[in-house]
Simulated assay, not measured.
Amino acid sequence: MAIISELFYLPPIEYFVAILNEKEILLDLNENYQKQTYRNRAQIRLANKVETLSIPVIGGNKKIKTSQIKIDYSQKWMNVHLRGIQSAYGKAPFFEFYFPYIEKVFRENFDLLTEFNKELLTVCLKLLQLDISVNTYDYGIEKIEKKDLRGVINAKSAYSERDIYEALPYSQLFGLDFVPNLSVIDLLFCMGPESKDILIKSQKNH
């Protein structure tokens, strides 16, 4: 079955739990862009806090389609994000294996936020060993069987309010308290090939 969703930046673990059993993701890029969402924000764990990485965009204040949102390279966000990820996960067990795939996408300097996010999503699916195709949703095709995830995973509300993800603690780098539902790179860098199994076990009704 296919699932329609927004396109997020290095999505939270909950997102991958939600799409886990699907064959195809249909990305809705024709929606109006929304600020302060996972579309341009991801959360990672540093030594003393959870850090939100935010991609600056051009034109996000207006009613503009997500597909037209451009990344603002006048701000030096890319090096900040890459340094933040390296600082957070440089000593993680699987960082040296997986980080080059992530860094390569950053270095491609995509003009559009959707192009950047889509490439990162594709890389994450491969690293998670999930055989799910990624395509753009065509509003003209209504006959296919599909689920609709749009508007469900919201950065402004807790994952525990939804019936998708049940946080299964895994070994993180810092502190004794497990922090759930960070960006999927937290899971990948810390757990490597076990990440898919963690996702399966994190399904609320599995």
Rank of each mutant, 00 (worst) to 15 (best):
202 S>R: 12
81 H>Y: 11
192 G>C: 04
28 D>W: 00
54 S>A: 15
176 L>Q: 08
50 V>C: 05
71 I>R: 06
16 F>H: 10
113 L>E: 07
153 I>R: 02
162 R>L: 10
36 Q>H: 12
70 K>R: 15
8 F>A: 07
73 Y>M: 06
201 K>Y: 01
103 E>G: 08
112 L>E: 07
181 N>I: 07
154 N>M: 04
189 F>M: 03
44 I>D: 01
158 A>R: 01
188 L>D: 04
4 I>F: 02
139 Y>I: 10
76 K>N: 14
46 L>R: 15
85 I>P: 10
183 S>I: 05
88 A>Y: 13
106 F>G: 10
63 K>N: 15
67 S>Q: 15
8 F>I: 06
5 S>M: 06
72 D>Q: 07
108 E>F: 02
164 I>K: 00
89 Y>V: 08
185 I>K: 06
4 I>P: 07
17 V>H: 02
40 N>G: 10
184 V>I: 11
17 V>S: 02
79 N>H: 14
34 Q>H: 07
144 I>H: 04
101 Y>C: 02
19 I>Y: 01
58 I>C: 11
25 I>R: 02
129 Q>R: 14
131 D>W: 07
195 S>D: 11
201 K>N: 06
68 Q>M: 13
195 S>T: 03
71 I>W: 12
152 V>A: 05
121 L>F: 03
4 I>T: 04
75 Q>M: 14
180 P>A: 07
90 G>S: 08
87 S>E: 08
80 V>G: 14
158 A>T: 00
79 N>A: 11
133 S>C: 10
53 L>E: 08
199 L>Q: 07
195 S>V: 09
161 E>N: 10
55 I>R: 05
169 P>G: 01
49 K>A: 15
4 I>D: 05
95 F>Y: 13
85 I>H: 07
88 A>H: 05
198 I>E: 02
204 K>H: 01
53 L>H: 13
16 F>R: 00
2 A>M: 10
204 K>V: 00
59 G>R: 10
68 Q>I: 13
1 M>W: 06
194 E>N: 12
142 E>H: 08
43 Q>W: 13
